[in-house]
Design a protein around this nucleic acid. Structure first.
Length: 639
RNA sequence: GCCUCAAUAGCUCAGAUGGAAGAGCGGUUGACUCGUAAUCAACAGGUCAGGGGUUCAAUUCCCCUUUGGGGCUCCA
């Protein structure tokens, strides 16, 4: 007999050699029916997996968080079987489950068309309906290689197999009663019908092993869900994302437009977009001055020598814009750090003066590969809300705590509800001492603990020059954006010979962190547009109030009303064009202006306004000073 | 950069087996002066991305360039 510990801590005894499914049945027939896999200690296993030792076991049903991954992996296999059936010359390569579903890469001469996708999808549905079991089979690597060489003529699988050296045997999974089998670690759902619903989403190409020098493959993306309802929800989310696309909304709301013939990756920000950026900037400066930062400004280009000192010519040159100044080489800045280092170095600092915090909204230029450019999300000219903090090693933890508090304050103010912290530790290739890394990494961890915020560790994911904290922010429809990063830097202080004078009147090296909160302000703006679907809160709205006269007789009164609002520094405009009133209301609504005010005879007489707020609620006879105060209060509260 | 799909009016798009370029919205002008999400009419707008080729004839077919969309190892 062996002892099985369940997630709730309870233990049951079963006969050695019984399967995961047996345990589920033991607990209850309902659970056995719902089960699709198990987690044995830390590993995911099939229901047919035999239990031979005392262990922890969790039964995974379609409702479990981990089910999505397993389900999608099985769906990838079913897709591969459908593709091979329809295109016998297609060679499956790899097909993992990913966060957004699954994909499978095929080597095939002709690319898949939209019509092919539909055919593949209906073939998959047939296979799912047939409800054949997934069967696991362990064979030796040698045998597997023979199989792929002789039976399937698939050099890709052979290549994968030849790289596996940690075990002698390997597992295959087959379904369709053995018609299709594929090299796979598993686990899989017990039978095809458990993959309730699938949808193929797109087809694209990808390189074998992501290497541009290797074969080009055709990749099909799809997604599987436990229920029809979940799929519908997901498709709605995709629709929703499309509606919020800042590349559409930006030009539509006259905020900005992305690159075209004037230079890919070089966005033009229009007056209204600029108002939002300015509001972001004002908030930023106010908060940073409060937090003891000194605001600076550094040039857009420096001579080559600066970038040699910083190491950029060595490590970053591919991404930099060179400037040939009649034979002398300059570079446009891809980062603000060197300028800030030089500003620190303008004089000697005493240990008593640290920390020194230097901040700048600095516009940088990076030559990104043309293929990665994407709206305002990935551009070649963008503004970082950059800051560098120079401090004693003992101050690191406090400073990190300060930055984290500021990050939280910012995201809350801009209307986000959830964000997550990640700490990245020392990578394989790194500079700096072991003690330095340990001290800095611990400071990051302790800081997170002090603010009492949960965080995850990304092992070995730090930059070569120091550990870091990243923050992922979730938007209104659940998409995640990496915004803030807080990085310790052991590199630049060395390169720029950054010092402070210690109590012993000797020179010492300070710790330096760089950090951004918005990240790139243009990207943050685009995220705000998608987050709010263009409906900016009042304090961020480029136009906060539009006044619409009922007839031409009310134009003067409309102008006077606008004046009242302008005096209170509320962004107001009157629409005095010759259009009909209804038309103007429609335009203002489509422009997502928070408050639309109508003025006619009634209002003129009583010195009031009719207020239409978002959601088409109209209130008549509103007193103007009262309404101004209401808006001012909203702006003050960042609403 | 590489793979793939695409490029027609300011915007969204239609179009013809290769034979005189279309709609809606937007713009301008005129009329309407209106009470809460589109008043009516007229007019202007295009080297069909650019270059080359095939053809009696190319926006349409082929090649190149430019630009844009999607994608480019979250491990069998």
């Amino acid at each position: 007999m062996v002892e099985v510990t369940l997630p709730d801590g309870s233990k049951i005894e079963i006969k050695k050699g019984k399967t995961v499914l047996d345990v589920a049945e033991n607990i209850g027939p309902g659970l056995a029916k719902a089960a699709i896999a198990g987690r044995l200690n830390d590993d995911f296993v099939d229901l047919t997996c035999k239990i031979v030792d005392n262990c922890n076991l969790e039964i995974i049903t379609l409702k479990s968080d981990d089910a999505f991954h397993i389900l999608n992996h099985s769906a990838a296999h079913i897709m591969a079987s459908a593709v091979v059936k329809i295109f016998p010359n297609a060679r499956p390569t790899i097909g993992p489950a990913v966060d957004e579903g699954f994909y499978y890469d095929f080597a095939i001469d002709e690319p898949f068309s939209q019509e092919d996708l539909e055919n593949i999808e209906s073939q998959m549905k047939e296979f799912i309906e047939a409800d054949t079991p997934f069967v696991r089979e362990d064979i030796s690597i040698k045998e597997a290689i023979e199989y792929y060489k002789l039976t399937e003529d698939n050099k890709f699988k052979v290549e994968i197999l030849e790289e596996i050296d940690d075990s002698n045997s390997i597992s295959f999974y087959s379904h369709n009663n053995g018609d299709f089998k594929d090299l796979c670690r598993g686990p899989h759902v017990p039978s095809t019908k458990r993959v309730t619903t699938v949808k193929l989403l797109s087809v694209s190409s990808a390189f074998w092993r992501g290497d541009a020098k290797r074969e080009s493959l055709q990749r099909i993306y799809g997604i599987a869900f436990p229920t029809e309802k979940d799929l519908k929800k997901h498709l709605r989310m995709l629709e929703e994302a499309k509606k919020r696309d800042h590349r559409i909304l930006g030009p539509q709301l006259d905020l900005f437009d992305t690159a075209d013939e004037w230079g890919p990756g070089m966005p033009l920000i229009f007056p209204k977009g600029r108002v939002i950026l300015e509001t972001m900037r004002n908030f930023w400066e106010k908060e940073h001055k409060k937090a003891g930062y000194e605001i600076v400004q550094t040039p857009h280009i420096f001579k080559e020598i600066v970038w040699q000192t910083s190491g950029h010519t060595e490590y970053f040159i591919e991404n930099m814009f060179p400037v040939d100044l009649r034979g002398e080489l300059w570079y446009v800045k891809p980062m603000n750090c060197p300028g800030h280092m030089m500003i620190y170095n303008r004089r000697a600092y005493s240990y008593k003066e640290l920390p020194v915090r230097i901040g700048e909204m600095g516009t940088v230029y990076r030559y990104e590969l043309s293929g990665v450019l994407h709206g305002l999300f990935r551009i070649r000219s963008f503004t970082q809300d950059d800051a560098h903090i120079f401090m004693l090693p003992s101050q690191l933890e406090d400073e990190i705590v300060n930055v984290i508090n500021m990050v939280n304050h910012f995201y809350k103010t801009f209307g986000f509800k959830e964000w997550e912290y990640f700490i990245s530790t020392k990578p394989a290739k790194a500079i700096g001492t072991e003690e330095g890394w340990e001290h800095a990494t611990n400071a990051l961890i302790n800081a997170m603990k002090r603010v009492d915020i949960p965080f995850k560790i990304k092992k070995g994911d730090g930059a070569f020059y120091g550990p870091k904290i990243d923050v992922d922010v979730k938007d209104a429809i659940g998409r995640k954006w990496q915004l803030s990063t807080i990085q310790v830097d052991f590199n630049l202080p060395e390169r720029f010979d950054i010092n402070y004078l210690g109590e012993d009147s000797q020179k010492h090296r300070p710790y330096v962190i760089h950090r951004v909160i918005y990240g790139a302000t243009e990207r943050f703006l685009a995220i705000l547009v998608e987050h709010y679907e263009g409906k900016m809160p009042v304090w961020l709205s480029p136009i906060q109030v539009v006044v619409i006269p009922i007839t031409d007789n009310h134009v003067n009164y409309a102008k006077k009303v606008v004046e009242e609002f302008s005096k209170a520094e509320i962004r107001a405009e009157a629409d005095t064009s010759g259009e009909r009133m209804e038309y103007k209301i429609r335009q203002a609504t489509l422009n997502k202006i928070p408050y639309i005010l109508n003025v006619g005879d009634k209002e003129l007489e009583s010195k009031t306004i009719a207020v239409r707020s978002r959601g088409n609620k109209v209130e008549f006879g509103v007193n103007i000073p009262d309404f101004i105060n209401k808006i001012l209060k909203e702006i003050e509260n960042y609403q």
